[in-house]
Amino acid sequence: MLYFLLSVFFTVTLYLIMRAYPRYQVNSFHAVVFNYYSCVLTGLVLTPDLDAFSHVSWHSEGTLLTLALGSMFVTAFMLIGLSAQKVSVTAASLAGNMSLVIPVIFGLFVFKNNNKNFTAVNYAGLILALAALALGAIHKKEKTSTAQNGTTSPANWLLILPALTFLASGTNNTLINYLSVKYYLPGQTTVFMIIACIGAVIIGSTLLLYKLIFNGETIQVRGVVGGMILGIPNFLSLYFLLLALASFGNSAAYVFPIYNILTMLVSAFAAWLIYKEQLSKLNKLGLILAVVAIILISYQELGL
């Protein structure tokens, strides 16, 4: 249970750190790039046997696809940060956690690797999850649509950010599940994630170099520091989640629903406590529906 709680803690920390970037004038993209340098370093520190990398075939199909996964890492992370900053921490957390619907759908209809028969209750949970996501984003529109007389408020088009976060996070998780199962042994999960983060470093650094040369951007110390700080909870959130999975017999269908529920609720509470984010009635309803949706999706594993 300790691993479980630590995973939730570090995941929520991610949202809160990225939410603070505008206050400290941290360039989000720069921070995301350097965050993956920190992820790789953190992963290497936590790898019990670094000799495992000597057995990696860097030109194999699996390794190249894992490196390419880094582009999805960068995309998803940028969208999470933008959603947290431009909409709210709650909306970003809701979108990220409800994205479990996507790997579930792919597991059912594409990979056909589900280990249970989905019932009408499970499918109702999937539909309810989409409704919860919509309500989580709508609350901001409701709150800002009355802003007038030059009052600063996010434009309506920004409301698409949680939806894009939902799609990117879901795609990311689907690819992680697919590649890790197809190309890596169970004990190589940490190696797999470090290779994916190396891919994110390569892709992110290439894009950053382009911005520096052609857009005249400059790297500031606060961007580097912000990214290096972010990388630690980024890697640890997954690291402890994997340990939690192992402690519960690798029952992902049981662990992930509880993990997602706790993350959403703690994120909403922390955002209210630290950033004074006020939840509208629709936002609260979205959180409630999200909890109900996840329970419906996995009620069998939860023993209900």
Results as ranks from 00 to 15, higher is better:
G199M: 05
F73Q: 00
Y123E: 06
S71W: 08
V101G: 03
N113Q: 14
N156R: 06
I127N: 04
S169F: 03
T165L: 05
N97Q: 14
K141T: 05
T75S: 02
T119W: 08
L108M: 12
N172D: 10
S145K: 13
I127R: 00
P154K: 03
A163Y: 10
G204C: 13
A91L: 05
N122W: 03
G62M: 09
G62C: 01
G136F: 01
A155S: 15
I102A: 03
V104R: 10
T190P: 08
A131Y: 04
T144D: 14
S71E: 01
N114A: 14
F111T: 07
A155N: 11
A196V: 01
K140Q: 15
M193F: 14
A120V: 15
V201N: 05
V201W: 00
K143D: 08
S93A: 13
T151C: 09
G107D: 07
F77Q: 04
I203N: 06
A147Y: 11
Q148K: 12
Q85N: 01
H139D: 06
P186G: 07
A147Q: 07
L126G: 09
V87I: 14
A132T: 00
T144G: 03
N113G: 13
N115H: 14
G199N: 04
I105K: 07
G187E: 11
A84C: 14
V74I: 15
A200H: 07
P103Y: 10
K86M: 06
M98H: 09
F109G: 11
A163Q: 02
N156S: 09
T119C: 06
S180V: 01
Y178G: 10
A131I: 09
A168L: 01
T152F: 09
I102K: 01
I202L: 12
M193E: 06
I160D: 04
M78E: 12
G81H: 05
V181N: 15
S71C: 09
F106T: 08
P162F: 00
S71V: 12
F77G: 09
G150N: 10
S93V: 00
A196N: 02
S180E: 09
P162V: 01
L100G: 06
I105T: 11
A92L: 04
M98N: 11
I198L: 11
I127L: 12
T146K: 08
F192H: 03
L69H: 04
I160F: 08
F111E: 06
A137W: 06
A168D: 00
S180T: 08
T66H: 05
N177T: 05
P103F: 09
C197K: 05
S99H: 01
G62K: 08
T189I: 15
T75E: 02
L126M: 12
L64F: 13
N173G: 07
Y123P: 02
T189V: 13
